[in-house]
């Protein structure tokens, strides 16, 4: 039963990867390419590229993608296949978080829990800074023969200064970024 196999495969992926969507890549690759042979390694590399460049959380995108292709390979309904894979990757998270969230108020009565969370605060802020730094360095120095991306650097600096002066919401900022990318493309300039 392909639907059940997809659900179970991705529930395992959701359960055994901690620390963000990208930590899932090796496990998903192992399951899809090596174990079930649903997709080739080239296709999988394409999946990762597409999942990175489509809206939505990376883990959801890649699970949906893999579900569609696995179901197609097995001659099953791709939409239902993607529902099973995406549902599978999400379900362990939801169940675990609901349990923790339900117990959170009671746990916070204990000083050690409050102390632990207090200690994690600066660390989480550091992680957010690291995410910005990593994304920035990958964008400005993509490697593979491409040099330093001066235009992207200038644009990032300009957008940052703009947000310091003008009260700009997150959605407006994202849409402005898309508009700038398209606007530059109109003049034949690739970001």
């Amino acid at each position: 039963m392909i639907y059940w196999t997809l659900f179970w495969t991705f529930a395992k992926v959701g359960l055994f990867t901690i620390g963000g969507g990208y930590a899932m890549i090796p496990l998903i690759q192992q399951e899809l390419v090596d174990r079930h042979g649903w997709v080739s390694l080239e296709q999988f590399t394409d999946f990762v590229g597409i999942a990175e460049s489509t809206p939505g959380p990376f883990a959801i995108n890649i699970a949906t993608f893999a579900g569609i292709h696995a179901a197609q390979t097995e001659g099953a309904d791709p939409i239902l296949g993607s529902v099973c894979s995406t549902g599978g990757v999400v379900l362990p998270s939801v169940a675990i978080i609901l349990l923790i969230a339900g117990a959170f108020h009671y746990a916070m009565r204990h000083w050690a829990v409050r102390a632990a969370l207090e200690g994690a605060k600066p660390v989480v802020v550091g992680l957010i800074g690291a995410a910005a730094f990593t994304l920035l360095s990958h964008t400005l120095m993509p490697g593979g023969g491409a040099g330093f991306q001066w235009l992207a650097a200038a644009l990032a600096a300009a957008l940052f200064l703009l947000t310091q002066w003008v009260r700009l919401g997150a959605v407006a900022l994202i849409l402005l970024g898309a508009a700038l990318g398209l606007g530059l493309r109109c003049f034949g300039i690739a970001l």
């Binding site: 910005a132 994304l135 990318g181 970001l191």
Partner: peptide, 24 residues
């Protein structure tokens, strides 16, 4: 979708905005 230069242009712009968003 992947090879469309307009899609790529919009995504490159969004990527820069996302960096600014996370930095903020």
């Amino acid at each position: 979708f992947r090879d469309n230069t307009w899609v790529a242009a919009a995504l490159a712009g969004i990527r820069v905005a996302a960096i600014v968003l996370i930095a903020r």
